[in-house]
Amino acid sequence: MEFREKPMQNLIRIKDKEICKNVQALLLDGESIVGAYKTVRDQAVFTSHRIFMVDMQGVTGTRQEIFVLPYRKIVHFGIQTAGFGDPLQTSELTVCYADEHEMKFGFIGQEELLAVAQAISRCIL
């Protein structure tokens, strides 16, 4: 996954039972899922403490590469809400880390974006 170069766009909410089993196994005691989203194959799972990015590989997607990005390493973040007349009503979250790289996540709808932004704010403020 080239998460440093390409944003995860058009993230669609998924149910907890659809979340990658390896991510569920990595959750700590007291850590809760704020929202789980997918692109065509890949997943982004936002918890109360960190972001899991899952790159599904291979034909069946059984091979997975998982990146774990803790909120405590975030220096700042920004949001861009959807505007009037936007065909997909997409909004965007940009997260900036201390090592100067940034990640972009494109959500369909604004409610999902705000829930994730609140979870990040709780950890970095």
Rank of each mutant, 00 (worst) to 15 (best):
M56P: 00
Q24L: 15
V34N: 08
E92F: 15
V34L: 01
I66N: 02
P70N: 11
E65P: 00
L28G: 03
A36K: 01
L27F: 15
K73Q: 14
M53W: 09
Y71Q: 03
V45K: 00
A82D: 10
T39P: 00
I66T: 02
G61L: 08
A36N: 04
S91Y: 13
D29S: 10
V54Y: 06
A98K: 11
N22P: 00
A25T: 10
D29R: 05
F52H: 04
I79V: 10
G61Q: 03
G85S: 12
T81N: 12
G58I: 07
T90R: 15
V95T: 09
L88T: 11
L69W: 09
V45R: 00
H76G: 00
G35P: 02
G58Q: 06
F52Q: 02
D29T: 06
T39W: 06
F67W: 05
I79Y: 04
Q89I: 06
L27A: 08
Q64F: 08
R41T: 12
L69R: 07
Q64V: 10
T62L: 15
A36M: 05
T39Y: 07
T60R: 04
Y37L: 01
V68M: 12
T47S: 08
G58C: 07
T62M: 14
Q80N: 09
H49N: 11
K38V: 10
S32H: 10
G83D: 08
V75C: 02
F46E: 01
M56Q: 06
H76A: 05
G35N: 05
I66V: 06
R41I: 11
D42E: 06
T94G: 04
D55E: 14
M56L: 14
P70E: 10
M56T: 04
L26W: 11
I79C: 08
G78E: 11
F46I: 01
T47M: 05
L88W: 15
